[in-house]
Design a protein around this nucleic acid. Structure first.
Lengths: 211, 211
DNA sequence: GTTTTTGCACTGACCAGTCAGTTCAATTAC
DNA sequence: GTAATTGAACTGACTGGTCAGTGCAAAAAC
């Protein structure tokens, strides 16, 4: 009767089911919102019985909360990796920001539904998962702020910039541009979008340089 | 249309009731989302009977849709006014963008709940008011795009910029920075936030020193 | 006297969460 | 080998509650 969780470190079956539920939930909630999405819908899209949802998650809210944590975790890791890679390669801090913009675009291209859902919840108040959201948001933004701080310390950026606000603005720039890209011109290439945002980042908008 | 105080598309009394309902709905929906907000709540917060809601609006969705139209209409008018005022005063296109950034901040400071709710709905699909949202969104973004186009035509901006994408990015920059401002540092002054965004717009981030 | 609002009871659809029962892969017994 | 046993994973009908929208007579506002 020993804990025969013989199937190495947590059953694979269960993990697969949870993954299917995440994938089903993310699209439905992105399209319709949390409250308008029913557990029955999620179960059906995942090809699973309703009871299975409750076997795997304590409630609809908990499912959503874990989904948020999981998704933002991926983004944060990706941003951090981009910043570190740039630093290792001896790039400037502007290069690091540029690499993070690209990492953001790659993420959004890959998980557009998650991004959409995240934005829709981010500034809400009075919701069960508010505090969770706060924590993961800060982890992601902190990566951007870190690069800005280092840039100021190294004299690459003006000492007068407002780090948190500039970080927010940069995040917003990428977020909205990318969501519009996915919604209205999904056929455009990532490189194309990235180039346009790079230009903006480096202040090469004003000042002519016609083709 | 006559502009007598009593006539403005209907009786004043009715208009006042509708206004109260808008105000009640906007806060509740911003906090909780559309589906999680009940008609009973809206009526109660507006200090009005439930029947009155249905006397004034065909349905909950229609109330929300008209709310969206109304709110974005205010924003669009404000952006347009800012652009035109700058043009009249002989400002550059960068000045016009800067004035529009300020107009955006003023709007968000005044109607934070509306902004929040708007962002939450903007990239959703499969919702009843999707097409309405599309139209009003485009009206607002078109104002920014117009200024960018004029700037390119006048040689003030590089001919290589991607106008729609740059417009999206600028909107995103202001939107996210302002929402974060309102959520996390509401005590900061608008001028302060505006200054930080102006700096970013004019590419005065990289490059050391300041004014 | 017409328009607007109120108050409130009512309905029918919908939905989160429950639970008694089933499936199945792995383990143990023979 | 194969039969019996175990327990985690899964199922889906069911329940208790919620909510959008209705109907209407009476009051208030204009």
């Amino acid at each position: 009767m020993e804990s025969s969780s013989a199937t190495r470190g947590g059953s694979t079956r269960r993990e697969a089911t949870r993954q299917k539920l995440y994938e089903a939930a993310v699209t439905l909630i992105a399209e319709q919102g949390f409250s308008a999405t029913t557990v029955d819908e999620i179960a059906e899209r995942a090809g699973v019985a309703k009871g299975t949802v409750y076997y795997n998650f304590a409630s609809k809210s908990v499912l959503f909360e874990e989904l948020l944590r999981h998704g933002v975790g991926l983004l944060t890791a990706s941003l951090r990796e981009a910043a570190e890679r740039t630093a290792r390669d001896g790039g400037t801090k502007v290069d690091a920001l540029d690499a993070m913009i690209r990492a953001g675009l790659v993420f959004i291209e890959r998980y557009p539904a998650f991004t959409q859902l995240y934005v829709a919840e981010l500034w809400r108040t009075n919701r069960a998962w508010q505090s969770t959201l706060m924590v993961v948001r800060q982890q992601a933004v902190a990566v951007v702020e870190g690069v800005l701080h280092e840039g100021v310390a190294a004299g690459e950026f003006s000492a007068e910039i407002d780090v948190p606000l500039t970080a927010s603005a940069l995040v917003g720039m990428v977020l909205v541009a990318a969501l519009d890209w996915q919604s209205f011109q999904p056929e455009r290439s990532l490189d194309d979008v990235h180039a346009a945002l790079s230009r903006l980042l480096q202040g090469r908008v004003s000042g002519r340089s016609g083709s």
